[in-house]
């Protein structure tokens, strides 16, 4: 992933010069360790700011919603799957896009790394398989595979599923991962334990809605929690309202979520709300053999009827 930046810049400059696109959407280097900022480039000069490394966890499909321009967009595996979903849901047209595919070996988990070192993280650099961290307490190195975001560690679609250009040869896909170990643990709980588990999971939530807003699927003009006439959900810090927000939002993502991890990454207090979306993702896989965003040729399971749909839960 180290040399991707140069290649992205090279492709971007060409696309802009040939007037194939009006703008490029990518990342620029962040001002704090392990953070890059989603950024757009309209000129060759802007393009020089674009970078790619293991801190590009924000899903760029989120920045395409309802845009009118012709756009070149850098897309790792999950971004590309959300772009597919965006196209299926008419949030952007395929013809508007030039997708710069970025094979991905995963993004690093800033919280995990902060927890593994002494003091404050001051600088993080990487070479191909190694992450080097300088903190106020000293220096440490980690194998990248040890410090991946949780969703990246179990990712099975690292390569873009749709693209117009690729910045490198595809990377090998992970085949020996157990995607749903954590979900099964919750499935095995009794209702009492499960209620307590989610109580604990959401206890620090401040309702900033960073999870929702970082999610490319959450593009409703007015979210149900923001509706005032009628008002569906209370606005205080009442734990029931907080839980209602999280679990209804998850349901709205059923059959659409690609487990890109943007929600968990964005959360200022580190809540793993993916435990809700992953359960629905698992159900869609089990019931409909469906994984979101893999193809432009078929509709997602929840907006399509098949006579042979499993309906075991209907009496």
């Amino acid at each position: 992933m180290v040399n991707y930046s140069d290649k992205i810049r090279e492709i971007s400059k060409r696309l802009l010069k040939d007037c194939k696109v009006d703008m490029i959407i990518g990342f620029r280097k962040g001002s704090v360790p392990m953070m890059n900022e989603p950024h757009f480039a309209r000129t060759a000069e802007d393009v020089d700011e674009l970078v790619w490394d293991s801190n590009c966890g924000i899903n760029l499909a989120n920045y395409l919603t309802d845009r009118k321009e012709k756009i070149g967009v850098a897309a790792k595996g999950c971004d590309s799957r959300n772009i597919v979903t965006h196209i299926l849901e008419n949030k952007i047209k395929r013809e508007q896009l030039t997708i710069i595919g970025v094979p991905c070996k995963g993004m690093i988990d800033k919280r995990k790394i902060a927890g593994l070192v002494e003091g404050e993280v001051l600088e993080v650099t990487e070479d191909e398989e190694q992450i080097n961290v300088k903190s106020s307490g000293g220096k440490k190195s980690f194998k990248k595979t040890e410090v991946l975001q949780e969703n990246c560690a179990v990712c099975i679609h690292r390569n873009p599923v749709v693209y117009d250009e690729m910045v490198a040869e595809p990377v090998p896909e992970q085949t020996d991962v157990d995607r749903y170990e954590d979900v099964r643990k919750i499935e095995e709980m009794d209702p009492e334990q499960r209620w307590a588990y989610f109580d604990d999971l959401f206890k620090e939530c401040i309702r900033c809605y960073a999870c929702r807003n970082a999610c490319p699927l959450c593009y409703c003009p007015t979210c149900f929690v923001d509706e005032a006439k009628p008002q569906w959900v209370g606005k205080s810090q009442d734990p029931i309202d907080i839980r209602t927000f999280h679990f209804l939002r998850a349901y709205h993502c059923a059959g659409r979520c690609t487990d890109c991890g943007a929600c968990q990454r964005a959360c200022p207090v580190g809540i793993n709300m993916r435990m809700l979306t992953k359960k629905l993702e698992k159900d869609c896989k089990d019931l409909y053999n469906w994984e979101a965003g893999l193809t432009l040729d078929s509709r997602p399971p929840l907006d399509f009827y098949r006579p042979d749909d499993p309906e075991d839960f209907i009496k």
């Binding site: 209702p191 209620w195 989610f198 309906e311 209907i314």
Partner: peptide, 13 residues
């Protein structure tokens, strides 16, 4: 979520 089974039921009528 921890809602007791039996409280939520689906039927096709």
């Amino acid at each position: 979520m921890g809602v007791e089974p039996g409280r939520l039921q689906f039927s096709w009528i």
